[in-house]
């Protein structure tokens, strides 16, 4: 049996980073966290997201400063490399810590 102080809610919804919390973005960040960098196609094949969906999530993560996108051309075709920034890594680690604290509390 937990006592009253243990039952007190010691977290709020605001603690959860909604940028990371979205399942597709969490999946993208999990991949980028464990590799140095990957191209758009690699992330797409691993997440099984559609091109448009992935592109939209990558843009949001880029706006938040969590990922860095480098676009270049191979021949005449564009090639996009994506890597996680230090801010992104910290946010991802914080999110995992927060979630394990919340799940542990529950």
């Amino acid at each position: 049996m937990k006592n009253a102080s243990q039952n007190a809610v010691n977290w709020s919804v605001d603690d959860i980073d909604r940028m990371v919390h979205e399942p597709a973005r969490y999946m993208i960040l999990s991949i980028l966290y464990v590799i140095e960098s990957g191209d758009f196609l690699f992330i797409q094949t691993q997440t099984a997201l559609t091109k448009g969906n992935l592109s939209s999530h990558i843009s949001k993560l880029e706006e938040a400063g969590y990922v860095k996108v480098v676009k270049r051309f191979i021949g005449k075709r564009p090639h996009t490399m994506i890597r996680m920034t230090q801010i992104g890594k910290r946010a991802f680690e914080d999110y995992r810590r927060t979630m394990s604290r919340i799940i542990g509390f529950m």
């Binding site: 590799i35 140095e36 990957g38 191209d39 992330i43 094949t45």
Partner: peptide
């Protein structure tokens, strides 16, 4: 087909 990734 799979894309390119640089590992740690």
């Amino acid at each position: 087909r799979l894309g390119y990734a640089r590992f740690s």
